[in-house]
Design a protein around this nucleic acid. Structure first.
Lengths: 252, 252
DNA sequence: GCAAAAGTGTTCGGGCTACACCCATGG
DNA sequence: CCATGGGTGTAGCCCGAACACTTTTGC
């Protein structure tokens, strides 16, 4: 069997500043090649798959600082290629500040995720200095008695491979689950950060505005305030916070 | 690459009745062969892996009524065998009432899961008319900054393959997560059931006694009461309930 | 002064926990 | 009549949502 690995690499960057009097906004980013394929790596029978994934990331970005977890394994003949019959996908979160290299064939795309009010349709925009596409993923619910199965498919024609779109959709779902149940949000940020930065990470991933007062209370046990303060713009400077290392939660 | 599929099949059965005046107790069960290996199946390049898993289950039990989800993909040279370098594991839940066949090489083992108060040690007992083993899985927490990684290993010597024990441990973790966040519990039960039966499913999976009054309130939106009543023993008969099909929760 | 973000406090409601209590049954 | 489970109600607590309000800054 031909088996390959796949990487969904998320990161964040700043939007262009539109108004000096307003907070610098963040945007979510994703690594793809020019044909909207995820970075992939070969799996051999000598090494541990997870280590091969890590090696690949280190080879791409020349850094070993990132978050990684296995996402899912895909094996549907409908999506087989000449190189991959089975594909193991890993979810990766990077802080762009840690990147020391960027190969020519890969690029960061801004990714905008928007869930339609209908609930079974998700709109994705992938955007770059060079190119931009937009497509929809439809979710069909299959129920028999108490069992529920979700089937995802690409709506209409789009210049992205359907399996890539489905993998990415699954990755976004996992990312949203992880950000609400673990502390992966910190993997996007520097060691020190403002609470508004952290909140923006939550907002762009969940596609939802949060109330600052409530957000602060919720994440309070996860962070520690430092004495340092940063002036961002024409408003009150914010304290810098760090992750509270004594915070422990037993997630899956 | 040599790639195989694997099945963690959970079910429940009744304990032997010790006292006619007490409620019939349930126990969790797991399908293994006589050497404590999980049932496995071949993966070919012609069919969808999930359908191969389903086919295998149908071949074993002659039924197509069960719950199935992909658990994890294992690919560590330390655990390679001559038949499997990569193993894709599926988690399956069966109601024993739906089983119409049982091959000679496979058996149901009673499985008792006990989390030691220390928290990083789990005791597992596998028990059968023919054989019984007991072993411990130790969980080591590896932290660097905010990232947490859990590494599981078999303590000492036990007549079970370490990878099997690790896979099973991961399956139990997933099962516990699923029972608290989805409605898989109903997959263990008949169409109609008593609330105490449902509660027992939760209790044996979570290894925790629950307060009936609170449990009823928690699962109330998920169930519908029928007019039927069942007399179990020397106490008040219980109403039969069914899954409330209009109950919807958006889980991962 | 004003816009905008940083930061604090209060109220309300839902969900979970603990617990008291009544009902129905067969031995 | 009593042990045991079926079933209901209530009080306390914590957490999240909504929102009012103060502080700090640069334009």
């Amino acid at each position: 069997m031909k088996i390959q690995g796949n990487l969904i690499i998320f990161s964040t960057d700043n939007e262009e500043r539109k108004d000096v009097r307003r907070l610098q906004e963040k945007k979510l980013q994703l690594v793809l090649d020019a044909n909207y394929n995820l970075p992939s790596f070969e799996i051999n029978s000598k090494e541990y798959i997870k280590e091969l994934a890590e090696k690949k990331i280190e080879e791409i970005f020349k850094t070993s600082t990132f978050y990684i977890e296995q996402l899912y394994t895909w094996g549907d003949p409908a999506y087989y290629t000449k190189d991959a019959e089975v594909t193991v996908t890993y979810l990766v979160i990077m802080n762009k500040k840690n990147i020391h290299n960027m190969p020519d064939n890969l690029q960061f795309y801004d990714i905008y995720i928007e869930n339609k009010e209908s609930g079974n349709l998700q709109n994705i925009v992938l955007n770059n200095e060079k190119q931009k596409i937009e497509y929809q993923i439809e979710t069909i619910v299959k129920r028999n008695r108490q069992n529920v199965e979700y089937i995802h498919q690409l709506v209409g024609d789009a210049p992205i491979r359907e399996l890539t779109a489905i993998i990415l959709h699954t990755g976004i779902k996992r990312l949203r689950n992880r950000i609400e149940n673990t502390n992966i949000a910190f993997s996007f940020l520097d060691k020190e950060f403002a609470l508004s930065e952290l909140q923006q990470i939550y907002e762009i991933i969940l596609d939802k505005k949060l109330v600052p007062a409530n957000f602060r209370k919720k994440i309070e046990p996860m962070v520690k305030k430092t004495e340092r303060v940063v002036k961002e713009s024409a408003y009150r400077p914010s304290s810098q916070y760090t992750f509270n290392e004594s915070f422990i939660r037993n997630w899956v």
